[in-house]
Design a protein around this nucleic acid. Structure first.
Lengths: 127, 127
DNA sequence: GCAATAGGGGAATAATTTATCCCTATGCAA
DNA sequence: TTGCATAGGGATAAATTATTCCCCTATTGC
């Protein structure tokens, strides 16, 4: 794993939640696990843009932060299931609030985001 | 500015809100601006761990996403004030929910975060 | 023996984000 | 005249995060 060089800020609630929620796919992982998609391969299918590797890494971090638990079934081929801990479940309403705000302002958000992204002239075929 | 090479995902509300809220200091900027700390130098004092530069950059992005507006007073020395747009204000309850969850679980969070951080043996004095 | 399956890990590299350093400009105070 | 406060930008380095590629486990079925 990567060795942090800059100590995290842990001053206020926002710092703290940031520490456990940052990571490109973490929120979605929590969401899908909550929806019942518990096996790694399932999660991967739900989040095809992420590589298998990152999902594993982020799941491990979520586990370390006690938001999910990993249950291993001693069968062959191996079977693993993730589920939310009680602690992790308390995050669901918060994530729901985030998603709801995003959904409510979907059009506007898409608009301003794309405006930013396209602000700098398109480069392409750089080689 | 940095030229994105990977297109952002804009599929669901969570993707969208992620795009505008990611950035180490953005949430806190929005929060403090909402609290009435509107001038850049004030924001810097409230967030001493961030460099002046990053705050400027992230404020600019927030402005580009139409969450804040920047008002310039033509005086010397220059005076600038940021404030939330109506759109930005709609985010405040969401941020409050994040902060509240963090505050409620403060002790436990600090605990699991530090456990993770210190999991890998302390390196230090590497040179 | 070999492929398929399901879940993971290591190393190297690419992408992205933050931090550092230094520079511009104005008017006022010491 | 030097220094300070205010606001901001460019270039570059460093830190962090994510992606890619390849390898390993063990069993069942051909």
């Amino acid at each position: 794993m990567y060795e942090r060089k800059i100590q995290p800020n842990l001053n206020c609630g926002l710092d703290l939640i940031g520490e456990v929620l940052y990571g490109k796919w973490k929120i979605r992982l929590l969401w899908f696990i909550n929806e019942g998609h518990q096996r790694p391969s399932e999660l991967q299918r739900k989040i095809p843009d992420a590589s298998r590797r990152v999902l594993n890494i982020q799941l491990k971090e979520l586990e370390g932060h006690e938001l999910v638990v990993r249950k291993i079934y001693p069968v062959v081929p191996p079977k693993v299931e993730y589920s939310l801990t009680e602690f992790g479940k308390t995050l669901i309403p918060v994530i729901a609030a985030l998603g709801q705000w995003g959904d409510e302002h979907e059009d506007r958000l898409r608009d301003v985001i794309l405006k930013q992204v396209n602000a700098t002239p398109y480069l392409e075929s750089h080689q």
